[in-house]
Amino acid sequence: MRPIEYASPRTKEQAVRLLASTWGETEVLAGGTDLLSLLKDDVVTPRRLINIKEIDELRGIAFDPRKGLRLGALVTIEELLDDPRVRQHYPALAEAAEGIRSPQIRNMGTVAGDLCQRPRCWYFRAGFGLLARDAQGRSLVLHGDNRYHAILGNDGPAYFVSPSSLAPPLVAYQARVRLFGPGGAREMPVQAFFRIPQSEDEREHDLRPNEIVTEILVPPPQGEASATCEVRQREALDWPLATASVALKMDGDRVTAARVVMGHVAPTPWLSSEAAQALVGKTITDDVAQAAGEAAVRRAKSLGRNGYKIQLARVAVKRAILRAVQGGAR
């Protein structure tokens, strides 16, 4: 069989030393809920797997009202869901985790893995590459079946949607992601962690091949009204067709600042300044929420078969806003 080395380091320093400096050579194994599929389907063919589950410092949830929330990279979706502090202070995050409907994935999948999982684009998964081109360089997505592809940020060359469930609420809460590599630690907003690859040599994250995600840091709750709304066809395990997470800072009934983030609509989590502008200074009503939904998709465009997702994103934003002020924690 095609040989694969398997390494199980105990420290993050050991882990990064085992990682190669170019993509494709090595892969990080945590929950494995995505990586094993990628390996079986020959989408990735690393020569070495680095299991990071033995690195204790990557575990644990910590919460301090003044410092905020710290999620170790290895925190599972189930641990996140089971934590009452997360549910109380960051409801949009808990609601997004609830959208991951498979108990097996909740039990094995990790929060960092949710951010780092690869796109579900069926051309990518069939081996046509992240940018899904045929031998002539033609985009399979543009010329083929793009019913589940991007409606925003879809000017190319990537058309897949970011599959992360947790990134939209994390971006809404202005969370940061902390990485560790040979040069030490670095940190960036979750939004900056995602990017649109420009070539097959790039990935969809600002993560170097020899870096790992170590933790996710969410700022202290600032009394935001927040919520996540997903549009999914099934109650059973199913990829959302569009999601929205919102975090609204309120002064009485008026919105003073807003972050509106859509998921599964673009190659990255999509922070909509248009939707935020439509909310600031307003009191939330059905009409205001509707207008913010309209603003959120103003720049959206169909690739041919995915026009319906524009409506779904619009509705997701509207409903997330309404849920945040009606039911979400303040």
């Binding site: 579900r120 069926w122 079946d145 109650e235 059973a236």
Partner: peptide, 28 residues
């Protein structure tokens, strides 16, 4: 839910898996 999604471009089935070939779950 169910459809054998065939791609005229590549000639292949696009959803030969249980993620995108969808069956009803108990909640559905």
């Amino acid at each position: 839910y169910e459809e054998k999604i065939m791609d005229q471009l590549t000639g292949r089935m696009l959803n030969p898996n249980m993620e995108f070939y969808k069956l009803a779950g108990l909640g559905d």
